[in-house]
Design a protein around this nucleic acid. Structure first.
Lengths: 257, 257
DNA sequence: TTCCTAAAAGGTATCTGATATCTCGGAGGA
DNA sequence: TCCTCCGAGATATCAGATACCTTTTAGGAA
């Protein structure tokens, strides 16, 4: 809840911030992804500040995910993606364990909706992408039957994430895709915890694959309600895995990244 | 194919980005909001780069919303909020009108969940905040019966947003609160459009207030399912308002901020 | 003529050094 | 004891310079 503050007497904002805000408005308003900004020298002349100030403004926008910067080339406007939100969510779940479950709760809601929408109006290509991810999970699991090695677990995980991401994309709702992308990084840690709990509860990898298969089947049938239910069941089960793995032992504090 | 280049992963971008990533990990991992970073000079020594490079790294983190920077003071770690995601979403809905409806769709899902959770376990203070926002809507509407003036409409709008925000907070799920905060800015434009459509469809302000009252009643009753349904009905109706107002006329392209 | 390569031009990345202005805490006076 | 003022420390911004990367262009070879 921000205070009204209509007239920004708060103008002690630095020159770099001012330039950054102006450029942001320009970029969001009338530039399309792929367009390149004028050179630093040119911007310095236009805003009548030093090149350093322009650089700092551009860095702020890089941090906001609006620009892509490479050495020797002009800065180009970046297509939006969810990464800008990712470390924000990461910081949320770092502060306490409840944050992780809050995130899981939200994720459940969004993924159930994704599944519903994906079943309702997905394209053949969309279904193919989901199928391909599931096939990848199968192969990763076959390669190492118990996911004993880190490499196999990593491969399985990335296909698992890919499965859910493919559903989010197949929903046709881009905001869902961005949110999923933003959530997948902070949920990465949760994944490894959940696999541990999955085994503790006597389940196998095949169970996991079957659960995904059911979701896929419902989507292919175009049955939104069933797809939603299958997704909800799967995620609720994953949540139980995590709770089982965490019961009695605190969330480890050290970041794995 | 690049040369071996063993000690320097050339793939990593600039020195500033490297420092920024390292600082981000530090901040997310082991610093709490309010803590201040070492001074630029000290960081420059620690990372063995010039102060300018540190400045750029810090600017990137400012853009990511991780740091708060003020002149003459060290940079302090910022408590997470949704604003970093807000202008990202704003950029999404700028690119085409479908983005707006994608966002509305996601919002519906999240708000329905908020209502459910708020009904399930809200505190007395949480309910009071929702009630207070609704009372504010009533008074704003009474002050100007048809919301003719911009000021009255603005007041009504902020109480309307406050109502929904209070529900998100009452849900007890902080991630929902952050997401709501991030969405409310880009949806601001949608609000004015919806009010126009509301009138076009022969509805009054009182209808809007009644819809909110119904949601509040369900939450007070602790009836999660009914609260979800009331919220869904209200938001679906709002969506119809927007579609009605937009039918035949394109979304205006000029940014309002 | 066509294709490949190397130099040139333009751009960013980073450093050094200097000045201005702001914040905060402590010294000193009332 | 409390208020005021000042200096130390920190950031903000400037200017100039070098290194390295990318793109373009021009020239030479097939």
């Amino acid at each position: 809840m921000t205070q009204p503050d209509p007239d920004d007497r708060h103008e002690t904002h630095s020159a770099a911030s001012t330039v950054a805000d102006d450029l942001a408005r320009l970029i969001l308003g009338e530039m399309t992804p792929g367009t390149s900004l004028p050179s630093e020298a040119e911007l310095a002349v236009r805003y009548d500040v030093s090149r350093l100030t322009i650089r700092e403004a551009v860095k702020i926008l890089e941090g906001r995910g609006l620009l892509e910067i490479a050495r020797g080339r002009k800065a180009v406007v970046r297509a939006p993606d969810g990464s800008a939100f990712a470390d924000f969510l990461t910081s949320v779940i770092r502060y306490d364990a409840k944050g992780l479950f809050d995130l899981i709760e939200v994720r459940l809601s969004l993924e159930v909706q994704s599944a519903t929408l994906a079943a309702r109006h997905s394209t053949r290509a969309g279904v193919a992408a989901i199928e391909s991810a599931l096939q990848g999970m199968r192969e990763a699991a076959a390669g190492a039957t118990d996911l004993a090695t880190d490499a196999a677990e990593l491969r399985f995980h990335s296909f698992d994430v890919g499965f859910h991401e493919a559903i989010a994309l197949a929903s046709g709702n881009r905001v869902l895709g961005y949110l999923f992308e933003a959530m997948s990084q902070p949920l990465r840690e949760g994944f490894y915890i959940s696999r541990r709990g999955h085994e503790q509860r006597g389940h196998t990898i095949q169970d996991t694959i079957d659960a995904h298969q059911r979701i896929l089947d419902c989507i292919k049938d175009g049955n939104g309600r069933a797809a939603a239910e299958a997704m909800r069941f799967h995620l609720k089960d994953t949540e139980r895995d995590i709770r089982a793995a965490l019961s009695g032992r605190p969330l480890r504090a050290e970041p794995s990244q």
